[in-house]
Amino acid sequence: MPRAPIPTWCFALVVVRRGDHFLIVQESKYGQPWYLPAGRVEQGESFADAAVRETLEEAGIPVRVTGLIRVEHSPSPAGARMRVIYLAEPTDDTPPKTEPDDESLGAAWVTRDELAKYALRGTEVTELFDFVANGGAVYSPDIIQAEGVPYRIGH
């Protein structure tokens, strides 16, 4: 008997770093706290492409993914959730957006010490910024590949 597919919701989260500053966005939902650029991966989109798109939509900042911090898989009886957390850097000096829209209320560059001034969605933002600032392990974003891509030694 064939098994039913497991519904899986996929999300990309992005820690964007510029020197000693990190990018945060003010969400228009969940009580309007500040969080990382993040969102659901759209049909046909890679996790990395979703990370770049979500950062541009929510913060107005074009970025380049530079590393992969962690892949999380949380199965439950109703399905599963996957989150891929990337490290990225801005590709230019575009300032964070300040005009609210459907994606976010705005964005800001902050230092780790300035985070205390913001109502954060949870402790995850602080934990991730500390992890990156203190030299936590960051992997090549190429570790995630599409099926069928040839295996290469030394790549």
Results as ranks from 00 to 15, higher is better:
Met82Asn: 13
Val65Pro: 01
His155Leu: 14
Thr98Ala: 11
Ile61Pro: 00
Phe131Lys: 03
Ala48Lys: 13
Pro96Leu: 10
Asp113Ala: 15
Gly122Cys: 05
Ala107Arg: 03
Tyr35Ala: 02
Ala133Asn: 09
Pro77Thr: 08
Val125Ile: 15
Gly31Thr: 08
Arg83Phe: 05
Arg53Val: 02
Arg17Leu: 01
Ala108Lys: 12
Thr66Tyr: 07
Leu105Pro: 01
Gly19His: 12
Glu127Leu: 12
Trp109Tyr: 09
Ala78Tyr: 04
Val63Thr: 08
Lys97Asp: 00
Tyr86Leu: 06
Gln32Arg: 13
Glu57Leu: 08
Val52Ile: 15
Glu45Pro: 08
Ser104Arg: 03
Ser74Trp: 10
Trp109Lys: 07
Glu58Arg: 04
Ser46Pro: 04
Glu27Tyr: 00
Gly148Phe: 07
Phe129Gly: 01
Arg40Thr: 09
Asp101Gln: 01
Leu105Trp: 01
Tyr35Thr: 04
Arg53Tyr: 02
Phe11Glu: 10
Ala108Asn: 04
Gly135Val: 13
Val14Phe: 01
Gln32Phe: 13
Thr98Pro: 00
Gly31Lys: 04
Val41Pro: 02
Glu103Cys: 00
Cys10Asp: 11
Gly135Arg: 13
Pro150Thr: 12
Ala12Phe: 09
Glu147Cys: 05
Val63Leu: 05
Glu124Ile: 08
Ser46Asn: 07
His21Asp: 14
Arg70Met: 08
Ile6Gln: 13
Glu58Met: 06
Pro33Phe: 06
His155Thr: 13
Glu124Lys: 06
Trp34His: 03
Arg64Thr: 15
Val52Cys: 10
Ser104Asn: 07
Lys29His: 13
Tyr118Lys: 05
Ile6Leu: 14
Arg40Ala: 08
Thr55Ala: 03
Ile69Ser: 09
Trp9Glu: 11
Val149Trp: 08
Tyr118Val: 01
Thr111Gly: 15
Gly39Thr: 03
Ala12Glu: 06
Ala51Arg: 04
Asp102Gly: 04
Cys10Ser: 11
Ala50Arg: 09
Met1Ala: 15
Pro37Met: 00
Val65Lys: 08
Asp130Pro: 05
Glu127Tyr: 13
Pro77Gly: 03
Thr66Phe: 07
Glu57Ile: 01
Thr123Ser: 13
Leu56Ile: 02
Asp49Lys: 11
Val138Arg: 11
Tyr30Thr: 03
Pro90His: 12
Gly39Val: 02
Ala88His: 07
Glu27Met: 05
Ile85Asp: 02
Glu72Phe: 10
Gly148Tyr: 06
Val14Arg: 00
Gly122Thr: 05
Asp92Phe: 06
Pro141Leu: 10
Gln43Trp: 03
Lys29Ile: 06
Thr94Tyr: 04
Phe47His: 10
Ala59Ile: 03
Thr123Val: 10
Pro150Val: 13
Ala116Ile: 12
